[in-house]
Amino acid sequence: MKLREVKELLNARVLTGEEHLDEDVYVACGCDLMSDVLRYAKEDGILLTGLVNKQVFNTVDMANMHSIVFVRSKVPGEELLEMAEDIDMLIMTTDYPLFESCGILYHNGLKGAIPKNEL
């Protein structure tokens, strides 16, 4: 799935990294617990979260992910958006809650980060 399709499906607004919208994403991780993100996230996946703090950006960067969708209309502050630009990260925000956002993407073919054999 292209990140542009994620944007359209979630009626999301791009905050940084619009130039990445034509890149592919194969898995998503919907999570507010950053230790789980480090455990289960896949490289080049997309994180959906309601947390808006520096640890989210650091975790995503450490996990080699390059995209975040903040749910429930959350918007990071200017300092965090500048940090995202510095590490070349696509940041979007959607009005949908986490559960619905993940459901919409899953229903449209985006897979989860945890393999079924690990559930």
Rank of each mutant, 00 (worst) to 15 (best):
residue 2 K to V: 02
residue 2 K to H: 14
residue 2 K to M: 13
residue 5 E to A: 11
residue 7 K to V: 09
residue 7 K to N: 12
residue 8 E to F: 04
residue 11 N to M: 03
residue 11 N to E: 14
residue 12 A to M: 10
residue 12 A to F: 08
residue 12 A to V: 08
residue 14 V to K: 11
residue 16 T to Q: 13
residue 16 T to W: 04
residue 16 T to L: 07
residue 17 G to S: 03
residue 18 E to G: 15
residue 20 H to P: 05
residue 20 H to Y: 15
residue 24 D to P: 09
residue 25 V to W: 05
residue 26 Y to M: 08
residue 26 Y to T: 09
residue 26 Y to H: 14
residue 26 Y to N: 15
residue 27 V to Y: 15
residue 28 A to Y: 02
residue 29 C to L: 09
residue 30 G to L: 03
residue 30 G to N: 07
residue 32 D to G: 02
residue 32 D to Y: 00
residue 33 L to P: 10
residue 37 V to D: 06
residue 38 L to H: 06
residue 38 L to F: 04
residue 39 R to N: 12
residue 39 R to L: 14
residue 40 Y to K: 01
residue 41 A to S: 15
residue 43 E to W: 04
residue 44 D to F: 10
residue 45 G to T: 08
residue 45 G to P: 10
residue 46 I to S: 06
residue 48 L to W: 05
residue 50 G to Y: 01
residue 51 L to Y: 00
residue 52 V to D: 06
residue 53 N to G: 08
residue 53 N to W: 04
residue 53 N to T: 06
residue 54 K to A: 10
residue 54 K to E: 15
residue 57 F to E: 00
residue 57 F to W: 02
residue 58 N to W: 09
residue 58 N to H: 14
residue 59 T to F: 08
residue 61 D to Y: 14
residue 62 M to A: 14
residue 64 N to C: 11
residue 65 M to S: 05
residue 65 M to K: 05
residue 66 H to F: 13
residue 67 S to A: 15
residue 67 S to T: 15
residue 67 S to G: 12
residue 68 I to E: 05
residue 68 I to L: 08
residue 69 V to S: 10
residue 70 F to M: 01
residue 71 V to C: 03
residue 73 S to N: 15
residue 73 S to C: 07
residue 73 S to F: 10
residue 74 K to C: 05
residue 74 K to V: 01
residue 75 V to S: 07
residue 76 P to K: 04
residue 76 P to S: 06
residue 79 E to R: 05
residue 80 L to E: 09
residue 81 L to M: 13
residue 83 M to H: 12
residue 84 A to F: 07
residue 84 A to T: 08
residue 86 D to C: 00
residue 86 D to L: 01
residue 88 D to M: 03
residue 88 D to S: 13
residue 88 D to G: 09
residue 90 L to S: 09
residue 91 I to R: 02
residue 92 M to G: 07
residue 93 T to V: 11
residue 95 D to Y: 03
residue 96 Y to E: 10
residue 97 P to C: 08
residue 97 P to T: 01
residue 100 E to W: 04
residue 100 E to D: 13
residue 101 S to G: 06
residue 102 C to F: 00
residue 102 C to A: 14
residue 103 G to I: 13
residue 105 L to F: 06
residue 105 L to D: 07
residue 105 L to S: 07
residue 105 L to Y: 03
residue 107 H to F: 12
residue 108 N to Q: 13
residue 109 G to P: 14
residue 109 G to Q: 12
residue 110 L to K: 04
residue 110 L to Q: 06
residue 113 A to T: 13
residue 113 A to D: 11
residue 113 A to M: 06
residue 115 P to Q: 01
residue 116 K to T: 09
residue 116 K to P: 00
residue 116 K to F: 10
residue 116 K to G: 00
residue 118 E to L: 11
residue 118 E to H: 09
residue 119 L to C: 01
residue 119 L to G: 04
